[in-house]
Design a protein around this nucleic acid. Structure first.
Lengths: 232, 232
DNA sequence: TATTCAGTGTAACAGATTTTTGAAAAAGGT
DNA sequence: ACCTTTTTCAAAAATCTGTTACACTGAATA
């Protein structure tokens, strides 16, 4: 896959530099714009593959920039919003934002979301694995196949995607909101308890399948697919 | 990461110089303002990434400066308060201060707090380690994972954060109040004995894990994660 | 050395919070 | 219309957290 270009738009130069650094490490090339007008202008000439767009900016704010760009392009846009600022999901959807990130953010999260959005748009940098394999567990998200102890188990799509998502990043803790965003999608509005119910049904299917891994609750935080370490 | 800029506001020039020195050594660039009005003015032009703000100043005091800056910016603010002066946490919270430091302060503490606040705002100068490793002890705060003698131990979030905090700064003594501030959070009000109970529960989990380190009580002061030195 | 006392360890409780679970309603597909 | 999947809801269960009371310890004093 050719090198992908990301445009970072924020009036705070530190944020721009930081994001640029994160993205650079992951092999993206970056373009920086430090205000709304510059963003609109450079978008035409640079033709980035994705835009990270701050909402709070003087003059032309993020929403306005988003609206303008959407008039001529479907280029994926991730909005940046400061914690405390209330982010209007409805407005975001109407204007065609693809995702949003709350500041302060972490490198990992930014990268994960950029990748996720690009993937959804069929622009992922490298083909990602469509299957995961653990002791007594095989998941293939392409043909929606789940095998536990070698036995195929009929599993509804949502459960399938959830276990695939968790098992693809073993030991990483996901909050319910992250899962809703990343598995259900940005546009999903709903009770975060929904995740619990799916986890429960997955657990019924996975119960006692292996000592090597477990679908664990991290109390007060979320869930993770925990894999026993053999080392250290 | 681009160089971060800190604005130091204090009517005592010695304090300013001293802080400036500390910060400079750590790679921050600094701007000094010696009264409230100057702080407000220079904030606009300099756009610092963080402000160290003395409370007691003639004319415009720290609280007033804080209020004014908060009208237009979420720039992190750490208040400086002299020992003896009573520092009003509630007022601090309402006005949106992010932390506070009591004078006389130590270089180490100032740097630690500046870093902590910047980190919370997603502006940390370098990626901080999310895991610590000692003989028979592995802590990963990102995955909420605690392993003692290689065995994974389920641990509640508060205990997790506490041991992570202590183990991240081995041999440093923390008072109970410091731990409440730094682990429970600036906004937490509560009995400092709470810390004792958490320490006890941690000790149960860590008991006899290693000769190399220990969760030690410093009588009359607080606690520290003590690591035996092999060198020196 | 005995005494005193503030500081610390511990166990147990209560309240708060979070998670699990079952059941039923809603939505979607055939 | 039927069946499956998904979501919602709320009661029940589990877990975490802060507090308290009391026992114990270390350090200072007489």
């Amino acid at each position: 896959m050719a090198n992908l270009k990301v445009m970072v738009v924020d009036d705070d130069n530190n944020i721009c530099e930081l994001l640029s650094l994160y993205l650079g490490k992951e092999g993206y090339s970056t373009v920086i714009a430090s205000n709304g007008q510059e963003a609109v202008d450079r978008f035409e000439t640079e033709k980035p593959d994705l835009i990270l767009l701050d909402i709070m900016m003087p003059q032309l704010d993020g929403w306005q920039v988003c609206r303008r760009i959407r008039k001529t392009s479907q280029c994926p846009i991730i909005m940046l919003t400061a914690k405390g600022e209330l982010f209007d999901k409805v407005l975001g959807l109407e204007l065609g934002a693809d995702d949003y990130i709350v500041k302060p953010f972490e490198a990992k999260e930014v990268i994960a979301r950029v990748k996720a959005v690009l993937r959804r748009c069929g622009l992922s940098q490298q083909e990602e694995k469509k299957e995961v394999n653990y002791d007594n567990l095989y998941i293939n998200i392409e043909n929606y196949e789940l095998r536990v102890r070698g036995k195929q188990i009929d599993t509804p799509p949502k459960e399938m995607e959830l276990i695939y998502h968790l098992a693809s990043n073993p030991n990483r803790v996901y909050t319910r909101d992250q899962l809703l965003d990343e598995v259900w999608g940005f546009e999903y509005y709903g009770d975060s308890r929904t995740v619990d119910v799916h986890i429960k049904r997955l657990r019924e299917k996975l119960e006692g399948a292996s000592e090597q891994w477990v679908l664990k609750t991290v109390w007060g935080v979320g869930y993770k697919f925990e894999v026993k370490r053999t080392d250290v």
